[in-house]
């Protein structure tokens, strides 16, 4: 039984991507070990070894899973040592309608055999086709038998609609809600990302605070920290638009954030 190193099995490699060992962007995520620990303990459980991460869009579910993979790789959880997290591309699996179910079954066989943790973002897409041919029906025996460990991210509403209505499935899933970070935490996250992503640019304290304040105006439908991060990146991009690609903004101030927010919402750019 292969539990770790080496190549991914063929179908997992073709229809998914391994999240372990991928550093792109993960360093920007500030560790929140409380969330990661809860997920890891759940995945290690004998009975409820599947996790549904719920929360508003943009609250950081996908980023948390990526951070979890990196943390497992770093060896923090001995119980999960050697386990790989593979994010499945459901769109790719759905492309071949004829072979979809069989293909998905074989992917799950591989995951079971190689003890791979499967991650599916926007898990409602597993139930896109009602009736016997939806992927959830293929998945169910693997979940209910405890054969695989699965992570899904979904909204609370979708979890209730697609997972919780089936008692056998619900029993096997632990629902972990990711809440939006509070203001203090949000500021920490923004500062962490700013340092990690834009090391040559100084962000003033006022700029960070203004970002948090104005993000609610720019994207009220989205959750934190996604909407603040979006405005942060936008502000940097707006400040650098007239610079060469190898140049960087020296500083992002409160005014720069305001100008970026105005631009983003369609007001005229300040001269």
């Amino acid at each position: 039984m292969n539990t770790g190193s080496g190549k991914l099995p063929p179908l997992c490699a073709k229809y998914g991507r391994e999240l372990n060992g991928r550093s792109g962007g993960v360093d920007q995520i500030l560790e929140d070990f409380s969330a990661l620990d809860r997920i890891a303990v759940a995945l290690s459980s004998e009975e409820q070894n599947n996790v549904a991460l719920t929360g508003a869009a943009g609250c950081g579910k996908t980023a948390t899973v990526r951070k979890l993979a990196a943390t497992i790789e770093a060896g923090r959880y001995r119980r999960l040592a050697g386990r790989r997290v593979v994010e499945l591309n459901i769109d790719l699996i759905n492309q071949d309608r004829k072979k979809r179910d069989l293909r998905f079954k074989h992917i799950l066989d591989e995951a079971e055999y190689h003890k791979i943790i499967i991650y599916v973002d926007e898990a409602h897409r597993l139930s896109e086709n009602d009736g016997p041919s939806n992927l959830m029906n293929t998945l169910k025996p693997y979940i209910t038998s405890g054969g695989i460990s699965m992570l899904i991210s979904t909204t609370s509403e979708e979890f209730r609609r697609y997972i919780a209505r089936d008692r056998a499935m619900e029993r096997r899933f632990q629902s972990i809600e990711l809440k939006e970070p509070g203001p203090k935490r949000l500021i920490e996250i923004l500062k962490h990302v700013a340092r990690a992503r834009y090391p040559q640019t100084v962000f003033t304290e006022e700029a960070i605070a203004e970002t948090v304040r104005l993000s609610a105006v720019c994207a009220p439908e989205r959750a934190e920290p996604a909407r603040s991060l979006e405005l942060l990146h936008y502000a940097v991009s707006a400040a650098q638009i007239d610079m060469r690609p190898d140049e960087h903004a020296a500083e992002i101030t409160k005014d720069a954030v305001r100008a970026a927010a105005a631009l983003k919402t369609g007001e005229e750019r300040a001269e």
Partner: peptide, 16 residues
Amino acid sequence: SEADVTYAPEDLDSEI
């Protein structure tokens, strides 16, 4: 025979 197939040529990798 489809019943036997886990990996078709498009699924095979450099090892299998």
